[in-house]
Structures are given as structure tokens and as C-alpha cells.
């Protein structure tokens, strides 16, 4: 079945269609969660909660073409709330190893900088650069003109640069 058809079925209450959709995007969801929460256990918890929230709210989804963006946004909102709940925890080597990621210094700074951003900037950068959502689709989901999304995106990138500069070490030309 086409994705759009699956989404239509899921909105009507077809559980199988709903689960297929979550399956389709589970890796995107997981990676998004991991990039925010940086911890496998919490990312899995996020998957559970987002599945739950998506199921509860799918009837409110107006346009079946934007299911993916809608789903990722639920995840981003959840992660933003989680980040607010627990104050930022700095990663140590042990945690990094448990992630299976060998990180260079730049990457670590980038992640820290991302966490320092305001919610909207973090959301927009994650959607655009992490989940490859088109500006047009972000605009529809956020119910604002594309121009506004572009402005926000630029602001977000500028804010990111400033955060990176604060941390030093990021020499750009």
C-alpha cells in the first residue's frame, strides 16, 4: 500500500496500518531521539512515548501527505520537553562508547551547541538537516509562509554559529 493510503487507513482506526507506518519511520525516529537525548535507553523510551502520542492523536492529522513531518515533530517536542526536565548532562567517554560512536571534538561541540539553542531553532535544524524535510513541508506543518521558515532557519544557523564561537575552536572563514 502507498504511504498516503496507509495514513488514511490509520486515521480511520486501522491498527495494522498505523503500526506499518511507525515501522517505516522507526529508524528516523530513533536517530532523532538519539541526537537529542544521546542515550540509548532514553531514546527507546522516547519511541514508546511517541508511538503512544501518535496513536492517540492520529485522528487530528489533517493532511496524510505530512505524516512523516508530523511524526518527527511529535518526537522533537517530546525530546525538547525531556531536555527541559533534566538539566543538561555532559557526556563522558563511557557514555560515548556505549553509543558506539567515536566522536571527534568538533562533533561533540556541535551537539552541545544544538542543545543550547532555543526549541524552535533546534526543531527546524533537526527537521531540515537531520530528517531531510523540505522547507515547504516544514512551512505547512508549522502553518506559516515558507519565507518565515527560511528566516527562522537562518536565525537558527546564526545562533548555532554563535554558540560554536562561544565554545571557541570553531574557526570559520
Amino acid at each position: 500500500m502507498e504511504t498516503e493510503q496507509l495514513v488514511k487507513e490509520a486515521i480511520k482506526g486501522n491498527d495494522e496500518a498505523f503500526l506499518k507506518l511507525i515501522q517505516t519511520y522507526k529508524v528516523d525516529l530513533y536517530k532523532t531521539a538519539l541526537s537529542f537525548l544521546r542515550n540509548e535507553e532514553e531514546a527507546l523510551e522516547a519511541i514508546q512515548e511517541v508511538t503512544y502520542r501518535a496513536y492517540k492523536n492520529i485522528k487530528k492529522l489533517k493532511n496524510e501527505f505530512y505524516f512523516k513531518t508530523w511524526l518527527i515533530r511529535i518526537m522533537i517536542n517530546y525530546c525538547n520537553d525531556q531536555l527541559k526536565l533534566k538539566k543538561r548532562v555532559f557526556m563522558n567517554d563511557e557514555m560515548l562508547n556505549s553509543l558506539g560512536v567515536s566522536e571527534d571534538h568538533t562533533q561533540l561541540e556541535l551537539k552541545d551547541a544544538m542543545l543550547d539553542l532555543d526549541d524552535r531553532s533546534r526543531e527546524i535544524l533537526t527537521l531540515k538537516y537531520f530528517n531531510d524535510v523540505k522547507i515547504k513541508d516544514i512551512a505547512i506543518m508549522m502553518q506559516c509562509p515558507e519565507g518565515t521558515v527560511k528566516t527562522w532557519l537562518n536565525k537558527a544557523l546564526r545562533a548555532l554559529r554563535e554558540k560554536l564561537d562561544e565554545k571557541g575552536g570553531n574557526l570559520h572563514v
Partner: peptide, 16 residues
């Protein structure tokens, strides 16, 4: 990143 698909499926199921 290595991903445990089993754990993810388990999490989806719990949420559902």
C-alpha cells in the same frame, strides 16, 4: 550507528 531493531520494536509495541 548500530541499532537494535528488536529493542525499537519492543518500544513501539509498549507504546501501542
Amino acid at each position: 550507528i548500530p541499532i537494535s531493531l528488536d529493542s525499537i520494536d519492543q518500544a513501539i509495541l509498549s507504546g501501542f
